[in-house]
Amino acid sequence: MSALLEIKQLHAGIPDKPILNGLSLSINPGEVHAIMGPNGSGKSTLSYVLSGKSGYEINGGSMLFDGQELAEMTPEARAIAGLFLAFQYPLEIPGVTNMTFLKTSLNAIRRGRGEDEMDAASFLRLARAKSKALGMDDDMLRRQLNVGFSGGEKKRNEILQMAMLEPKLAILDETDSGLDIDALKTVAEGVNALRSPERGMLVITHYQRLLDFIKPDVVHVMAKGQIVKSGGPELALELEKSGYAEYSGGTEAPAGGREAHA
């Protein structure tokens, strides 16, 4: 089986500041991988570099997605190829409704994949069904994109986008941040419903808590821009007890701790 995502010796950063220092990672279809690590280890940078945010420099290595080199693709080409990033801090865009945004996005991706655009009625049916499954009411579709949404609603909206776009690989960047336990459960259920033998997932988190609800197949520890340890789900539990001090050389709190601002 060929890997869905194959990162080899990736070096990347912002000008004059290397952040990823020879990171390697391989995700097969159907697998859920978790990346844990202390603040500043480069977790979010990895998600941005994979999805093509501007401002980062790739200085070496490769990242093949379904056999294609991501570094050579625009962010929209990556999305069309089936890559999806659930943002840590979803943006608010006043003046565009959630519905218009979802439809524009879905049809852009369908066009990019050489499929017909979805007509308004079919789209509406699909959007309603998917949002209902996530416990979102129709009102959230009519509202302006993320404007006035609670932290939980914003994250649920990210998962709704993922459910609509049906990516091959979903990267969840600190999807647990800012969520209370009920919101976390709802979001995790939404993510779990999207697990499938064809789809890979990369769950980035600082805290073990999320992995109680989204059970990973593989857990990686990231420090100083590299994967320093990989293992099964038990590795996350270990981190909960011991913290990241061993990896960061500092006095980072245990991974089971609560975010101060959560």
């Binding site: 999805s51 093509g52 625009t74 929209e76 990556r78 999305a79 945004f101 996005s105 776009l165």
Partner: peptide, 13 residues
């Protein structure tokens, strides 16, 4: 950031 967000959802620039 908004521009990147929209492009990451498949919209061309």
């Amino acid at each position: 950031d908004a521009l990147f967000f929209l492009r990451s959802r498949g919209l061309d620039e």
